[in-house]
Each structure stands twice: as C-alpha cells, then as structure tokens.
Design a protein around this nucleic acid. Structure first.
Length: 878
RNA sequence: GGAGAAUUAGCUCAGCUGGUUCAGAGCAUCUGCCUUACAAGCAGAGGGUCACUGGUUCGAAUCCAGUAUUCUCCACCA
C-alpha cells in the first residue's frame, strides 16, 4: 500500500460534498435542540463568486460547522436577491444585443425575458458556493421574488401604509438617467471629478450692468428661476429688488436674498435652479419659485432647452460654452474639482429631479433599532461600527422606496382617478377595488378602472425582511419555523452595507417581530490586493476564487482567506496565504501517512509515551481553551492560528516525534490508540476550517471502522477540559534542553547524527528524571548524567535554573564559552537591577498590588540563583 | 466641512481593565541539513526608540493632550 506523498484535494472535495448532501447533514428542521441559525446575505441572483463572497461564506461555514459539531441544530439559509436595478440593467443590455428595445416591450413581456434570464443564469453563484464546501441547507434556498417572499413584501407595504408610515410625495430624488430610475441617497456614490467652473454674466434688467454667477453646470440655466445673494453682502446691496436676465434663455428672474449663500464662494451670486439641484430645491420652496424641469428621463434637454432640446446634457455643456463665449456672456472658465454624485449601479452621473415617489418614514422605526445596538442587545464585531451606525440612525431620513423599474415587487397602490390622491393601497386588486369604491363613493368602479402603480420597490425593501421572510414569518407570524429559528444567531456581512441592509433588518425585526433579527453581526473586511487596492473587475486585480480552489484546493483557499481576516479589518490578499494553507493541509496529510505506516506490537506503552501523552493532553486542552476564547470574541483568524500551531508544532513537531518508534520498530498498540485518539480530536478542531481533508482522513480505517453516517461533519466538537498547567511548564524545561542542544549542534556544525553526552546539575525541584528518555531520543544524546558540580571544559547552558553541560571532544572553546556566559550574566544583572529598583522603591511596594510585589520578589530570587550559577561557571572556566 | 479608527519586525497583525526584561505570532529573510511522514519539509538564527512631543504615575506600547501620517463613514457650496 502506498499513500500519495501529498494531499490531493480534488477527489476528496467532490466525493465528500456529495456525500454530505446525500446524507442530509446540511438539512435542518425544528427539533428539541438549541437552534443555531445564519441567514446568508443573498448574493445578486445573476452574480458570480468573487473574493468577497469567498471570504464571507467561508466565515459563515466555519461558524455553522462548528455549531453543528457542538450539537446545535445548525441551519444556514442560502438564497439570492433579485437585485432589481442591477438585474434589470443586465436584462436590458442582453435584449439590446438581440436588437430588442425595452421600450418596445410591454411590462409583461419584459418580465418574461427577465425570468428566463434568471432561470438561466440565476443561482450560478450558489453552485459555486458548493465548491468551497458551504454547508447550507439547500432545501431552504430562497429568492427574494419567490411567491412567499413576494407576498411578504406586499403585506409589509400595505401594513406600513395603513400605519401611516408610507406616503407618496412629490420630492426631489436622485435620478439615474442610464437606468431611468431614481435611487436612494445611499446608492449615490460621490466621486471627485475634474470639471470647470463657468462664470456667467447675467444682465441686470433695465441697466447695462452685469452680475457674474459661477456654476459648474451652465446647461442648467434653462431651469434658472432666480438669482440669490446673501442679504448681508454689501457688494450687492444695489441689486436688491431688481431682476436679472438669464443668458440665452432671456428669462427675467428675481434677485432673492438668503443667508444660505456663501459670501466667500465664487462671486457671491448663486443661480437658482429649483428643479435640478437639491439646495436650490429648498430655496425654491422657501421663496416660492417656479420649478422648471429641463431634462428628459435620459437627461437630455427637453423643450425648455430651446434649440438644445433633444441634446445630451454633457454635449449641451460644451455647446453652450461656445454660444456664451460668442455672445460675450462668459466671463471666464476655471478648472475646478468637485464631487459629483454617481449611481452605485450604473455609474451614471446622478441628475437631481423632482417626481412622485414613495417614502417610508424612518424616525420612529429607527428608535428601537438604535437602542438595541447601542446597549449591545445586538452585538457588533468589531464594536467600532456602532459609531457609524449611531450616526446614521440618529440622522436617518425617510427612505425612498420606489424605483421606476419593472423587475421587482410592484407597488400595491391602485389608482382609480387622475388626482394625486386618487389611489388606494391593498394586497390584491380585488381588495383595492372595494376600497376604491368606498373612497371615491363610486360603487360602479370595476377592476378595469384600476391602474396599479407602475413602480417597483427598492431591492432593499425585500432584503430588509430576509431573516423573517425566509421562514415565512411575515405571512404566518406564528408558524413553527419562525418561532424556532428566529431570532437568528450570527450575521456575517461586509461593512459597506451596514445602512442599506443591516440597519434596516434590525428595524424590520423590531417592527414586525418585536425583537432582534440576529444576536451578533460579524463585519468582514474588504478584500484588497497587495497594494491595498480594492479588488475589482475593472482593475483586473482580483483572482477568481474558483481558480484558486482549483490550484490550491478549497481547504487551502479557505484557510488563506481566514489567515489574514480579523473582523472589520481590510484583508490584503496574497496567494502566498493559499500556499500556506496548502502546506498546512499537506502537513496534516503527512502526519497521517506517518502514523498509518507504523507496525504494531502488543508490548505495553513505555513510560515516556505516557509522559508525552499526558503533556499533549494538557497542551491540547490549553489550546482548545484559547480557541474557545477566540471564537467567543469572533477572532476567527486567531482561532485558526492557534489551531495551526497546535497541529504543526505540538502535535506534529513534538508529540509525533516523541512517540515515533525507531526505524523498523513497531509501536505499542496502546500508544497507537492514544495517538489516533489525539489525531481524531485534532482533526475535529481543524474541521470547521478545512472540512474536506479532515473528512477524508476521518474515514480511514486507521481511525476505526465507520458507520455510514459517522462523519466528522457531525462528530462532537471537543469540549474544554481542565488541564494541569504545571505539566506544560515542566515539560517546557525538557523542550528547552532539547532546543539548546540543537542550538549547540548548529553553531558548532555538529551533525544531528552524532550522539552527544549531557550532564545536568539540577537546582530546580522539577522531576527531570522522567524526561531523560525523551531528551535522549529527541536531542540524540549518548548519555544523560546528573552531576552536582561544575563540569570543566564543557559547553554549558541554563535551562530554567538547571545548568546543563555538553562535553565536546576537540571542541572546547573557552573564550566563546566565557563570552556567552558573560553576555547572559550582563542580561541577568540588568534584570536584577531593574527588579531591585522597584522593590527598593517604597512607593512601589506600597501602591502596587500585593501579588505583583510578590512576583517581583520571586523574580529577584530567581535572578540571583541564576547569577550565582553562572558566576561559578565563569570561575570554573578559569 | 463633521465623525470615527489606526500608526508595534521587511509584510499582515496580537498585545483585554497600566505591572514578569513586554516587546510577541505567522509569513518572509538568513545559516545548516534531501534525517526512512512531509524540501509543500527539518533544525537553528537575525530582525522593532512600540509614529513624534509632552503629561499623569512608583511604573506607560497600554491612560491623557498636542503634532504628523494613513484609512473609513457621513455631508456636500454653486
């Protein structure tokens, strides 16, 4: 029998993933066990796996696997988001390629195409998640537009409307001319752009004077309905009450006064375009100005744009500069950088625009959501995100929830007349009809008279219900599932959607369930490249996680993601991390190969085997306690590192070397049992991080015959047990002796094959005798003797308080030896001085805690002992 | 403009309520080894005024103030 020298991930991954699935290990149904629930942040239905998903879902899988092994009823709900604007944009683009214009389609036909697209490309990402080992309950896969979830959204809308929290308003919104919809403030990304500041001349009516107005958007002069000055601006006192003429347009507009105008900026004169600027809009309302809309939905000039009608806004900007120049109305043009709002989804420059939209009042809803995060009922990891959460929640504005799109949940408002208020809100058209009949007093209305609002709801208006709606808790608030799984335990997500999503889920949790949606929120970092740049398609700096998994294996890639991912920190990703993961997988694989190759004998376990076992037992529990502590604080990379070191250093480098039989010799069956039992426990610790490798090894006959369902994925995770710290401390002295001997070999160029004699002059009260066999074996010693006097002509070292001597033929370098001892003496004396200084300081002795003073005293005694030993050695050297 | 966070070894980060000479880990580097589990490995080593300046304290990487640099979020002035 020969076992491959390196671990081959590919085979194991396919085999075990389907095995787990076939055996239903991912499935969860309510039972008497404690639930542990995670709802997956639903990726866009048309998305493909990127590094962010890889990180996010690896973390969730680690958490869910651990919980499952701890005997909880682990339920990880996967799903996808319909991603209204993003998906619709893709479908529109796809149709365009086929020569189909969205405008030429009916809503119904368009949706048919969209659903086809969804069926074809939707869920690719979920398939990809399987590759990384995601142990989701796939039977629970949800889509935000599934009938149940669709129904939930509609129900919630009606409910909030009836509570008076949803209203329809004619407001200024952020218009995305490319997607031809409005978007919420959160979806506007401000980017610094190089533009120009145009200084335009407005003639003062009835005079030949001009005033100069600075603007970055000269094309908006068609919408100017006032020019505003600061009432305290003495430069312009003469202007008060006058009118000016808008260039090209020829419109006479009033000079208005408002302290909003910054005296310092530009010329101190502000052109006011109430229909196309947020601040001007406010001014317009305040001063009762006319609102002149000058753009079409595609941000081309409309008829108000006179001879520019039909031309794109940016083209107009260029053209109008020429015209103004020609007419002598352009004083100057300066280069200017300013922040321009762009659409998160399409990147198009946002055009402020006034239109009828639906809003959700947030102020009251936000209150419980804010309080329960601030008092840690819901815990954020790391806590620093509480700050920005509070900031946002305290200044929350009404949520614009309508979108001028077709792909999504259509707003359940039905119009029955032409007036702005001639509508009713209801779950079905039938209900709407009877409401409409009542409201209008017209019993003759029929379904045909109703027109449902064309708009759909913001994607986040369905996503915010996710932890509830996946269990159908909106439609059936008392069903068994929602009562069992809700509130969920952990949410793992990126901090950039804290407002879009996390905050709103908390709001909806308290509003619709009266309690928190999850107990903990783990904010992952943002995956960056080595140069610290965000990974993105356009930069081409993002590795494809699928490629990484093909090259290094899923386990190694998972580990690579986690190694550098403390919560909330950005994650500078480097493929070297996957290499480290691969090496680790290989290390475990080879430990297995080693143990697997041992022959067995019936002879009883040796004393040193037992000593080694009791040491590893203690060390294992010590590490496990650390791991638990790390998990408790959601320090996953630390938990992984502790596991890594336990396996590599303690299990492989120490324990296996200790019990490893000499070449050609068999191992005591008793010892082998201990080894395999440790090995299995170690595999369990590793499993949440590296599920495939551990499952593969688990089933080897080395670890005993297994029933079909006896898999590590459902094996019991080790529990923390008390351990003897003294065992670990004592053993550390043996480890130090071994390490010192190796060091001597290294520095003197002595081969590890040459056995050396060691003498120990013991001063400590440790039972060193028990370690003789171990030290002899690992350090390759010829003999170990205990002496009570200095050994002349030997190379010495201190292990704790015990002085050790290695007698080397032809290798006595007295000078080097003296130098070494003197160096150590210097160090110890310095140490002693600092300790003495403290102890002789009365204020220290008085003020410091007693145990700290005690500690200092024992440090002093320790140092004095060591100094004495070293000084004697020095004398002995002559 | 407002708010928050960070600055510790070449890199990425630990270091919790001041107290072991507290300066750590992993990776990378260097030296020596193909030792019969693993060169994807083994053994060993080097490497840091804890950003700077003050202050509080018996005692500061740790607490406070200021300075510098970086990052994030929010707002967005034409």
């Amino acid at each position: 029998m020969s076992i491959a020298k390196t671990y081959n991930p590919k085979e194991a991954e396919e085999k075990w993933y389907s095995y787990w699935k076939a055996n239903g290990f991912f499935r969860s149904t309510p039972d008497e066990r404690e639930p542990y629930t995670i709802v997956m942040p639903p990726p866009n239905v048309t998305g493909v796996l990127h590094m962010g998903h890889m990180l996010n879902n690896t973390i969730q899988d680690v958490l869910i696997r651990r919980a499952r092994m701890q005997g909880k009823n682990a339920c990880w709900v996967p799903g996808t988001d319909h991603a209204s604007i993003a998906t619709e944009a893709k479908v529109v683009a796809m149709l365009k390629e086929q020569g189909i214009d969205k405008k030429s389609l009916s809503r119904e036909d368009f949706l048919k195409h969209a659903w086809e697209w969804k069926e074809k490309y939707g869920g690719i990402i979920l398939k990809q998640l399987e590759k990384l080992g995601a142990s989701c309950d796939w039977d629970r896969t949800r889509f935000t537009m599934d009938p149940e979830l669709y129904q939930s959204v509609i129900r919630v809308f009606v409910d909030l409307y009836n509570k008076g929290l949803i209203y329809r308003g004619y407001r200024m919104v952020n218009w995305d001319p490319e997607a031809k919809t409005n978007i919420s403030d959160e979806e506007v990304i401000y980017k610094e752009k190089n533009g120009k500041l145009y200084h335009l001349k407005y003639q003062v009516e009835g005079t030949d004077k001009y005033i100069v107005v600075a603007t970055t958007r000269p094309e908006t002069i068609f919408g100017d309905t006032a020019v505003c000055i600061n009432p305290n601006d003495e430069r312009y006192t003469w202007l008060k009450g006058k009118q000016v003429i808008v260039p090209i347009v020829g419109r006479k507009v009033n000079i208005i006064e408002d302290e909003y105008v910054d005296l310092e900026f530009g010329t101190g004169c502000l052109k006011v375009t109430p229909a196309h600027d947020v601040n001007d809009y406010e001014l317009g309302k305040k001063h009762d100005l006319e609102f002149v809309d000058i753009f079409t939905d595609e941000a081309k000039l409309n008829d108000n744009g006179l001879h520019y009608a039909g031309m794109d806004r940016f083209k107009v900007r260029k053209e109008i500069e020429k015209e103004l120049e020609e007419k002598g109305l352009l004083e100057k043009v300066e280069n200017y950088t300013n922040n321009v709002g762009t659409s998160e989804r399409t990147g198009a420059v946002i055009e402020p625009k006034i239109s009828n939209q639906w809003f959700l009042k947030m102020e009251d809803l936000a209150k419980p959501a804010l309080d329960n995060v601030m008092d840690d009922t819901i815990k954020f990891h790391p806590t620093k995100f509480k700050n920005s959460y509070r900031n946002w929640m305290e200044n929350v504005t009404d949520w614009n929830i309508s979108r001028q799109l077709w792909w999504g949940h259509q707003i359940p408002a039905y119009f029955y007349g032409d007036g702005n208020d001639d509508f009713v809100v209801a779950q079905t058209a039938e209900e709407a009809l009877s409401l409409a009949q009542q409201k209008s007093g017209n019993a003759g209305l029929t379904l045909a008279d109703l027109r449902q609002d064309e708009d759909v709801l913001d994607t986040w208006f369905s996503a915010w219900l996710w932890p509830i709606s996946v269990f159908n808790g909106i439609n059936e608030p008392e069903n068994e599932e929602i009562n069992y799984y809700y509130p969920t335990q952990d949410l793992v997500t990126a901090p950039d959607i804290i407002f879009f999503w996390v905050a709103r889920m908390i709001v909806s949790g308290y509003e619709f369930r009266g309690q928190l949606p999850f107990e903990n929120v783990y904010f992952t970092g943002i995956v960056r490249d080595k140069l610290g740049r965000k990974m993105s398609k356009s930069l081409g700096n993002s590795p494809d996680p699928i490629d990484l998994m093909n090259e290094y294996g899923a386990d190694a890639t998972r580990m690579g993601m986690l190694l550098t991912a403390p919560a909330g920190n950005d994650l500078p990703f480097d493929v070297e991390l996957c290499v480290q993961g691969r090496n680790f997988a290989n290390k475990i694989w080879n430990a297995f190969r080693l143990v697997k190759g041992w022959e067995i004998t019936d002879a009883p376990a040796s004393e040193s085997d037992k000593i080694s076992a009791s040491w590893f037992e203690a060390r294992f529990n010590q590490a496990l306690a650390e791991i638990e502590e790390n998990f408790k604080h959601y320090r996953l990379s630390d938990a992984l590192m502790t596991t890594y070191k336990l396996v590599w250093d303690d299990f492989c480098a120490w324990y296996l070397e200790l019990v490893k039989p000499a070449y050609g010799s068999p191992i005591a069956s008793e010892t082998l049992d201990t080894v395999t039992s440790f090995f299995q426990r170690v595999l369990k610790l590793v499993h949440p991080f590296m599920p495939f490798l551990t499952e593969e090894l688990w089933h080897d006959e080395l670890f005993g015959a297994k029933e079909e369902k006896d898999c590590i994925i459902v094996a019991e995770f080790p529990k923390v047990k008390a351990f003897e710290e003294q065992v670990i401390k004592d053993f550390a002295v043996a480890q130090q002796i071994i390490s010192e001997v190796r060091n001597i070999r290294n520095s003197k160029g002595i081969s590890p094959k040459v056995a050396l004699p060691l003498a120990i002059n013991q001063q400590s009260d440790i039972d060193l005798g028990q370690y003789i066999a171990i030290i002899t074996k690992i350090a390759n010693l010829e003999s170990v003797t205990f002496v009570t006097e200095k050994v002349a002509g030997a190379t010495s070292f201190l292990a704790g308080k015990d002085e050790c001597y290695v007698l080397l033929e032809n290798n006595v370098d007295v000078d080097a030896e003296r130098e070494r001892i003197e160096k150590e003496l210097d160090y110890l004396k310095g140490f002693l001085v600092s300790v003495d200084k403290k102890l002789s300081n009365e204020r220290f002795v008085q003020n410091a805690k007693p145990e700290i003073v005690e500690n200092e005293k024992s440090k002093k005694a320790d140092a004095e002992t060591k100094i004495k030993i070293l000084q004697e050695s020095l004398t002995a050297l002559g």
